[in-house]
Structure formats: C-alpha cells, structure tokens
Simulated assay, not measured.
Amino acid sequence: MLQQIYPSVAHDFSYELNKDMHFASAHFVPHESAGACQNMHGHTYFANVTIAGDELDETGFLVNFQSLKKLVAKEFDHTLLNDHEAFDDRDPNFFPTTEVVARTIYERIQKHLDTLENKPVCLQVFLRETPTSYVVYRPKRGKKSES
C-alpha cells in the first residue's frame, strides 16, 4: 500500500496508532437521487483508522493491529454492504454510502475499544472510495456512539 498523508486530529494522548486497511465490497444506494449509484457496483475501499490513548495493554500494545483488521477488512471484504445488519435500505442514515460506512467502521471499532482495560479511543476514520473521493468521520467530542 502506498504511504499516504491523512488529515490529523489534535489530541493530548500519549500514543497515536494509525492502521491502513483495504477491502473490496459492492453496494448500491437505494434512492432515485443517487443516479448511477442506485445500481449495484463495487469499490476497493482504503481505510485508515486513528486510535489514541495514554496506556498500553498487557502486551505493550495500544490496540492489536490484527483486531482492527478483523473488525473492518475481514468483516466487509468481498461482501455486498447492503446485506450487512448495520445498513438499512429504508433509512438514509443507514444507506451504505461512504459517509455511513465510515461511521459504521468507527462504531464497530469503538465498541471493541470500550471493552479494553486501557480504554483507547478511535479519533477518526478516513475512508477512500475511489482515487478521487473520500470521507473522514470524526465523532463529536464528548458524545458517545449510539451503537
């Protein structure tokens, strides 16, 4: 994977971890205003997640890179995103758009991080859908995820 520069998040944590991943998925956006995106099509998504914290776990990790890969790439790779429980073709807040996929990745990761004793936090998810289009999802500070 090519090294890329991602938007950074200002924070006061001691450690910051970034993990790059990619996955190939198909999707469609179930709304007439989506134009050609109403038709099923695929992308090779490139994701970067930024996680920060002050404490390392018992293995000396902020978080294990493999657990992040399982939560994202292994979950979504070679699937139809519309078939996942996290997405709903009846509610635009849950259509599998790049914005919603980025938010869903954040929610999956943060839910896992909340179970860890060292309590790292996911600061942002950068999700590239095409070479020219990407989304950055950052939760509002002080606001917990709805998941």
Score class of each variant (00 low, 15 high):
residue 59 T to P: 02
residue 85 E to G: 15
residue 30 P to L: 13
residue 54 D to T: 11
residue 130 T to C: 12
residue 41 H to G: 12
residue 142 G to E: 01
residue 135 V to E: 03
residue 87 F to L: 13
residue 127 L to I: 12
residue 101 V to N: 02
residue 103 R to P: 00
residue 49 V to A: 01
residue 50 T to G: 01
residue 4 Q to M: 08
residue 61 F to W: 15
residue 35 G to A: 11
residue 121 V to S: 03
residue 83 D to R: 15
residue 46 F to R: 07
residue 111 K to G: 11
residue 85 E to A: 12
residue 41 H to Y: 07
residue 125 V to C: 08
residue 112 H to R: 15
residue 68 L to C: 08
residue 131 P to H: 06
residue 128 R to A: 06
residue 99 E to L: 11
residue 7 P to V: 00
residue 83 D to E: 13
residue 38 Q to M: 13
residue 18 N to V: 01
residue 102 A to D: 00
residue 71 L to Q: 00
residue 21 M to K: 01
residue 21 M to F: 01
residue 103 R to M: 05
residue 138 R to D: 05
residue 114 D to K: 04
residue 109 I to S: 00
residue 12 D to M: 08
residue 144 K to R: 12
residue 45 Y to W: 10
residue 87 F to Q: 11
residue 108 R to N: 07
residue 58 E to Y: 14
residue 29 V to E: 11
residue 138 R to W: 03
residue 57 D to F: 04
residue 79 T to F: 01
residue 111 K to L: 11
residue 90 R to L: 12
residue 35 G to Y: 14
residue 45 Y to F: 08
residue 18 N to A: 05
residue 53 G to L: 06
residue 90 R to A: 13
residue 40 M to H: 08
residue 116 L to N: 09
residue 105 I to M: 03
residue 119 K to E: 09
residue 140 K to C: 05
residue 34 A to P: 06
residue 53 G to P: 00
residue 120 P to Q: 07
residue 1 M to Y: 08
residue 124 Q to C: 02
